[in-house]
Design a protein around this nucleic acid. Structure first.
Lengths: 340, 340
DNA sequence: TTGTAAGCGTTATCAC
DNA sequence: GTGATAACGCTTACAA
């Protein structure tokens, strides 16, 4: 609580001018070795470290990168943040985070707060903000939206290729001999329409008929939709769920109905969350290069900042298939509903 | 990228002085309604919002609360951060987050960065920083450590009562008729020694012999230690794991060995992570009031700040038992190892 | 109620 | 190389 030492304190103690201290702190090469040492010593003795805000105010340039995390609870974003963090640190930027709990109004407030720090750039992770608000933010500097489709020329985007990911899963299942492959639709969830489209296209590519069952990105929805699926009486041998948690709901509904996974029915998720990797679960899924997505977002900001790029860039990242125990060759009979 | 409008711009447009704009922005009551309206209109027309850093520099007081999150991936912390966030917002504070990936050096750097913003206070979530570094940080203002025992008078602490939590689990199992209850020890994990102590004390209280099997806060360690447990040939009917993920490892090792949960063996976790609540898993566990912990941390900062408290406060929060399907009455025989 | 002017802790632009 | 001195965008006595 005692007043922190300022540059003037250091200057006085070292017997030099404040300007010289400033040069030393910024590691300027044109300071004599002797003075530099004196300043450095005075600084450590006083426990001085530069005041980041005053520095930015005076230099008129910010080294703060603001990141809006729509949902801190979701480890998916934590992975992206780690990528952002690493890339930002490497570029000499500090990262400040804000959170919005996936509510548009809370996100807008959070963005306001972040912008009040006058950051050099703003990274939005899967924001639910209205596009107009994003456009407004983009008037103040580079904005990158991750996992959100946006056509604004002022905003760069980084997304994973959900179509390709669904395609990977369908290809994998077809290779295992499956033909009756159901997709649980993600409903209102982000990326759900892309994933559905990828599924339908891949099915068509293989000459198979698509079968989409409405669901949501939740465990409960997975349970409910698989129950309905079974009630139809139509046979199926594989389920491509909306995401991992949805797949886990599907798993438990199948178990309740006496269907064994993967002997009777194969199940796949999406996102490769830590859940999918649990021994207990062992879910075949799709993994996005999340750290890379974070890195690319930072890179996009830097390009606008340092190279003056003004045309938007659209990164579409390729996901990777992760095969685990929840998928296996289709049973010759192909009638999953007759197991019990 | 165009220069953001400043207070002077607003003042000029509204035909008033900069000081008056400042008063309006800070919602001072002693401004005439007419001028206030004019200023507000000019501000919205220009899209003006105050420069947070300049404001703090001039007012010599910070409304920034810095939070170090040791591990963003862990949803446990996300819950605490939400509590911090809510309480900070209510008190008119902005929150900035830093992360350290549970590496002491990375955490120290992160704290340095956070302090360069000259925050009003610093909240450390389960830090792995050396105590000396924490003491140093505390020279600059209020510091609160969450989930980390610390005897520094300059630092307030908020922790959950791990002893009580383990006690709740043992009481619950004893009530179900269990006597051969094993504890998987958390090893190097935070709070593990407290949880072990709570287990041992509770066992003693019930006149039972404690049995501690070394483990870690991971799934793999849970698997390995239960395997070793079974190899001993000594009968047991219940397992109090180090935490939830450890318990899930235990579940799968038990399943591999042909032991049914909860018919043959009861299993309990700790932390009430989202994993525990999965239908597929249904783990009995202990829940900490995480949002409250965040709130209390903010409150502690505020007390030092506004009420000038200088004596440290130690909050010890009471956990809650959450009973799910993984625990059940002990089998009369009480011989778990003879099922297969 | 409103305006003037002196900071806040730095960097940038000049001189020397 | 080093040192004055004017910004940076704002708050805050103090005057008016």
């Amino acid at each position: 609580m005692t007043r922190r030492p300022t540059m003037d304190d250091v200057a006085e103690r070292a017997g030099v001018s404040r300007a010289l201290v400033s040069l030393v702190m910024r590691e300027s090469p044109r300071v004599s070795a002797g003075r530099r040492a004196a300043v450095l010593q005075a600084a450590t003795e006083l426990g001085y470290s530069p005041h980041a805000m005053a520095r930015r105010l005076a230099s008129r340039e910010s080294t703060v990168l603001a990141v809006l995390v729509s949902d801190l609870r979701n480890p998916y974003f934590a992975d992206i943040v780690e990528g952002v963090d690493a890339a930002a640190a490497a570029a000499g930027f500090e990262v400040i985070l804000g959170t919005g709990s996936r509510r548009p109004d809370a996100e807008e407030r959070s963005v306001e707060t972040l912008l009040s720090f006058r950051p050099a750039g703003l990274v939005l992770l899967s924001p639910v903000l209205p596009a107009a608000a994003i456009a407004r933010a983009a008037e103040n500097g580079p904005v990158v939206a991750v996992e959100r489709a946006l056509r604004l020329t002022a905003v760069d985007t980084v997304t994973d290729d959900g179509r390709a990911g669904s395609g990977l899963l369908v290809d994998h299942l077809v290779e295992l001999g499956h033909t009756r492959i159901v997709h649980l639709d993600g409903g209102h969830g982000a990326q759900s329409s892309t994933r559905r489209r990828g599924y339908l296209e891949a099915m068509q590519r293989h000459g198979l008929t698509g079968w989409v069952q409405p669901s949501e990105y939740t465990e409960d929805a997975g349970v409910a939709s698989v129950r309905r699926l079974i009630e139809t009486g139509r046979p199926f041998t594989a389920v491509v769920a909306a995401n991992d948690i949805n797949a886990i709901g599907a798993l438990s509904a199948l178990a309740d109905a006496g269907h064994r996974v993967p002997q009777d029915v194969s199940v796949a998720g999406y996102d490769n969350t830590s859940l999918a990797g649990l021994r207990h679960i062992g879910l075949t899924t799709v993994d996005q290069p999340r750290a890379d997505m974070g890195r690319l977002a930072v890179q996009a900001v830097l390009e606008r900042l340092r190279q003056g790029r003004t045309t938007p860039v659209r990164h579409l990242l390729h996901p990777r298939l992760v095969v685990r125990r929840s998928t296996a060759p289709a049973r010759p009979a192909g009638r999953a509903t007759s197991t019990a």
